[in-house]
Write a protein that binds this DNA or RNA. Structure first.
Length: 267
DNA sequence: CTGAGATCCTGGGGGC
DNA sequence: TGCCCCCAGGATCTCA
């Protein structure tokens, strides 16, 4: 499932291919793909792609009109530029370009959403601070954690506080920082906060360099798999020996999500 | 504010 | 081998 590094990779690949393209119309074959809060999607007709970026886990297609088309891929969404006259497998919606070709949104599970936004997309989407931005420093991180009793992993996954971190990278960062996922956020020591912030940024940056992690069936806009899945140290390794101390990795459920950690290394 | 639980979906894995 | 059942998973909404 695409998280920050995967979405960043997709956005960069897409930017190179569709920037400057003019949209003729939008075709929607599964109506619920369009978020109920979206501006009328057909008003995209006549607009031009000015660039492609990322807001949290959303692919943000910036338009010449100043608006933003935000796309959340959820678990199985994919964005594919194609000329195919036939609909692609699980194609739910597409931006048809003037001339030829289209940007197809394919999504087997139908959880992904498109939403056209006027104004600031971060505010409309209620996405918190970007973990790779300069503003995300020790002070900002400490303020987010202060006095909160929520387990630290749940807080890392809360998109309204920190935008872009998903299950895989939350598990990986906590393992690298040797912090137990269930630890109450407000109870981390200053050193643990520093370690965790560093680990989070390092793992995200490294994953972007490797074009993301291909767990399940993730591929980027060019249809390429990522490489970071080979560097995962705890995610998906339940029962396998910890790479530091050989203790079997434990799996628990936290906030309804599979959570992996080493019961010895992580406090 | 906070946490718990339901909801949306379907491919694929597990169980028999 | 074949078939059925049921679960994973992110965001959002309701309810306590």
């Amino acid at each position: 499932m695409p998280e920050l590094p995967e979405v960043e990779t997709i956005a960069r690949g897409l930017s190179a291919v569709i920037t400057g393209r003019r949209i003729a119309r939008v075709d929607v074959s599964w109506q619920r793909t369009i978020d109920a809060r979206s501006e009328p999607i057909q008003t995209l007709g006549g607009d031009t792609v000015a660039g492609v970026g990322r807001v949290g886990k959303f692919v943000a297609i910036e338009l010449a009109s100043g608006r933003t088309l935000a796309i959340h891929l959820r678990m199985t969404g994919r964005l594919i530029v194609t000329d195919s006259p036939e609909p692609l497998a699980h194609e739910r919606a597409a931006l048809a370009f003037v001339g030829s070709g289209r940007l197809a949104f394919c999504d087997a599970r139908k959880f992904g959403r498109l939403r056209l936004i006027e104004g600031d997309p971060g505010a409309a989407l209620r996405v918190g601070i970007d973990p790779l931005s300069a503003a995300f420093d020790e002070t900002a991180f400490a303020a987010l954690l202060a006095r909160r009793t929520t387990p630290i992993k749940v807080l890392l996954l809360d998109q309204r506080r920190i935008g872009g971190v998903g299950n895989i990278y939350a598990c990986e960062a906590l393992y690298r920082a040797r912090v137990r996922p269930t630890r109450r956020s407000g109870r981390l020591t200053r050193l643990q906060r520093r370690e965790l912030l560093g680990a989070l940024q390092k793992v995200l940056k490294r994953a972007i360099e490797m074009r993301g992690s291909s767990v399940d069936d993730y591929v980027d806009a060019e249809g390429l798999q990522g490489e970071f899945q080979n560097q995962l140290t705890v995610y998906g390794r339940a029962g396998l020996p910890c790479r530091r101390c050989r203790t079997p990795i434990k799996r628990i459920v936290l906030a309804q999500r599979g959570t992996f950690y080493c019961p010895v290394c992580q406090q």
